[in-house]
Amino acid sequence: MRVMDLDDILGSRPDDPLSALLREDLDRLSVAELEARIAALEGEIARSRRKIDHAVNHRASADALFKR
Rank of each mutant, 00 (worst) to 15 (best):
M1G: 14
R2C: 09
R2K: 15
M4N: 06
M4D: 04
D5H: 05
D5F: 01
D8E: 06
D8P: 04
D8M: 04
D8Y: 05
D8N: 11
I9L: 15
I9F: 08
L10F: 00
L10Y: 01
R13H: 15
R13Q: 15
R13N: 15
R13T: 10
P14G: 02
P14W: 00
P14E: 14
P14Q: 07
D15A: 14
D15Y: 07
D15P: 07
D16H: 14
P17R: 00
P17H: 01
L18D: 05
L18F: 11
L18R: 13
S19W: 01
S19T: 10
S19P: 00
S19K: 14
S19E: 04
A20Q: 15
A20V: 13
L21I: 08
L22I: 02
R23P: 02
R23T: 07
E24G: 02
E24Q: 09
D25S: 11
D25H: 06
D25N: 15
D25M: 05
L26D: 12
L26Q: 13
D27G: 15
R28F: 01
L29T: 00
S30Q: 02
A32K: 08
A32L: 09
A32R: 12
E33Y: 02
E33W: 03
E33I: 03
L34P: 03
E35N: 09
A36Q: 14
R37P: 03
R37A: 10
R37C: 02
I38D: 09
A39T: 12
A39S: 11
A39V: 07
A40S: 08
L41A: 09
L41I: 11
E42P: 01
G43H: 01
G43V: 00
G43L: 01
E44H: 14
E44N: 13
E44L: 11
I45C: 02
A46V: 03
A46M: 02
R47V: 02
R49M: 05
R49D: 06
R49C: 00
R50N: 07
K51M: 09
K51C: 04
K51A: 15
K51S: 11
I52K: 08
I52F: 05
D53F: 03
D53Q: 07
D53Y: 03
D53R: 05
H54F: 10
V56L: 08
V56T: 04
V56W: 03
V56K: 07
N57K: 05
N57G: 02
N57C: 00
H58E: 13
R59C: 04
A60R: 15
A62T: 12
A62S: 12
A62F: 09
A62W: 12
D63W: 04
D63I: 06
L65W: 06
L65F: 10
F66R: 12
K67E: 12
R68C: 05
R68N: 10
R68M: 10
R68W: 06
